[in-house]
Design a protein around this nucleic acid. Structure first.
Lengths: 199, 199
DNA sequence: GTCTATATCGCGATAGAC
DNA sequence: GTCTATCGCGATATAGAC
């Protein structure tokens, strides 16, 4: 793999990631990607073997693979463990907004590609579910239905992604990462009745 | 407008609504819509004047126009008012899942159509924002940032829509409307420190 | 009001020159 | 490794028969 090959491959990858996040997979043509990357139309086939393969390549390249799953094993305590997961998810989705938008798009549209995406994301939520359940047994969390609790946590955690509609409703248009993380975590822990959350 | 015209128009409308929600606007062809509706391919142009117009027609037909905006005026009390809004939004999005999915899709993909959608949905959230602010002044809600609070409320309210990924994570695959409404509301009010929410 | 047939377009992918 | 030219397909939309 020469330097120029890597270079052009990566430029296509970045261009595709950008355009997919803004227009969706279906709404983005190979021609557009190559124009954005300054590459010839044929190079997508040459380097990746098709548009679909570009999508997969983006994922394998940019998804923060073990970043979460390694750390979370170290934390067995429900409150701290759940907090870590939520923190990392928000941090990721606010840092690589393009990739997290792509994930959301595939989920919402229930694409064939969504299953691949799911295989990356669902282990994390599965861990969150475990911690919620364990935390209730230990008297740290208070809720009626585990399903409803998990649903609530997911919704609150991914709130900022759902809000294309709210952009005009918010006075600050660019969310500060740390502030968003802390406030969201605060709301969630309070809702779950976790110890240490002020009434 | 004859009965047969209305009939076929509506059949196309229902077919399009169904397919748009499952495959997205771009992912659905006029041919598919007409096959689903048992109509000829040319009838979409004849009745509506194009695929895009079908989308708008769906919206004008099925969006619960005044259903919310009328009622909410009657309630000035922040806790009760916000509760009503949240209740109605969840109820709507669980009742007409097709339309609410379409709304979500257009928002996420940031389509030109999203702006139209926004004009229907944003007044409701704007009211919610007002009630949040007013509620804090009256000492009923407790939060630091109004933006972050609104964001949280929106995320939690629309949680079930965001969760295509969670389908395998939940043990109950069909959410009961009333149960979901009550639990979500409970979580939100507790997170906001509203009076009457048990610690 | 509904049909067939067709015009026009843009897509993804590739063969083959360089 | 990169280009041009083109193939084959399926899309929307419409003209015109019935």
């Amino acid at each position: 793999m020469t330097q120029t090959e890597t270079d052009m491959k990566m430029r296509i990858l970045y261009a595709a990631k950008k355009l997919f996040s803004r227009q969706g997979f279906q709404g983005t043509s190979v021609r557009q990607i190559c124009e954005e990357a300054g590459a010839n139309v044929a190079l997508v086939s040459y380097y990746f073997g098709g548009k679909e393969k570009v999508f997969h390549a983006i994922f394998e390249h940019f998804f923060p693979g073990r970043h979460l799953s390694e750390q979370e094993d170290h934390i067995a305590h429900p409150v701290q463990g759940l907090s870590l997961i939520i923190r990392e998810i928000i941090r990721f989705s606010l840092t690589d907004r393009e990739l997290s938008t792509i994930i959301q798009q595939e989920m919402v549209l229930n694409t064939p590609r969504a299953e691949v995406v799911n295989s990356f994301t669902s282990p994390v939520w599965s861990k969150a579910r475990m911690l919620l359940e364990q935390g209730r047994k230990e008297g740290l969390f208070h809720y009626e239905s585990l399903d409803q609790a998990l649903l609530f946590v997911m919704g609150a955690t991914l709130a900022h992604k759902q809000i294309g509609c709210g952009r005009t409703l918010l006075s600050l248009h660019d969310l500060l990462v740390d502030e968003t993380v802390e406030h969201t975590l605060h709301f969630i822990l309070k809702a779950l009745g976790a110890p240490g959350s002020p009434a």
